[in-house]
Amino acid sequence: MMRKKSQSLLGMAFFGPALVLLTIFLFLPMILTLVFSFTDFFALNPGLTHFVGLDNFFQIFQDEEFRRAFLNTLCFVLIIVPLQGLGSLGLALLINKVTHCKKYFKVAFFLPVVMSLAVVSTLWIQIYSPEGILNAILENFGISAQPFINSASQALPSIAVMSAWQGVGYQMIIFLGGLQGINPALYEAADMDHATPWQKFKDITLPELKPLCIFVFITITIGAFRMLVQPMVMTGGGPSHSTYTMVYDIYETGTVNWEIGLASTMAIVFAVFVMILTVIQTIATRDKEEKDVDKKTKKK
């Protein structure tokens, strides 16, 4: 009896510091975000706050800027997910096959991951500049100078290509890990049946990597939804709002304009999207983890 009581005291003593911080910086902000999303809370004049029900939710979807930010975010996702997902899978397949310089290739394609988003963005402002190195290279191939981040039609795709460049090595490493986990006996059996490389890829590699593919593609999608630093550093959301994203709108509405009510509503909409994706990811990859656990326990 005594022991049980001292255990729960000890438990709370160990868990306590984390619990206090979790309460102040996670539970409370989450609750407040939800509450504020139904109010017109303006932080510079908190006395005038009213409960407005679902008004904010209607208002943000009628707001030209938020709709633009929402569509830009979706557009960014549509460009970057195939680019980065298929790019990383392709690189992993090639590097897994290659017999020489494997280590160099891994490091080379992983290098941009090491650089922070702010650094990469600062660098690519120069790369994309009208008189920059990319236009100089294109000129050698007979392509005329492109405006890239200075034009409303090219800015978002340019940022997407840069972001895929920065992140592709990360997923490549995940896929390489997955490829090494495939049982070589499967390929040996296929060789005995004189399977072509394409058949081996289609019938062994792809099915074995399927859970990992889902995991990777959703990870990229979530990352794309959260995109903010690149336009913040490179374009300020412009030209003419063409690189304005959801998180950018939350940030400006909340911390620049102090319209916490509206910003909270946007944050809730954003969080719902990201959390749905995360839940799909968890469910879709749970089978794989269970299999991994089975393998590990069998080894023991």
Binding site: Y251, G254, S264
Partner: peptide, 17 residues
């Protein structure tokens, strides 16, 4: 469950605090 909450959601409130 907290692991799935994106930080961007609550960063405004952190800033306010």
């Amino acid at each position: 469950l907290l692991m799935i909450v994106p930080m961007e959601t609550i960063i405004t409130i952190h800033f306010l605090f």
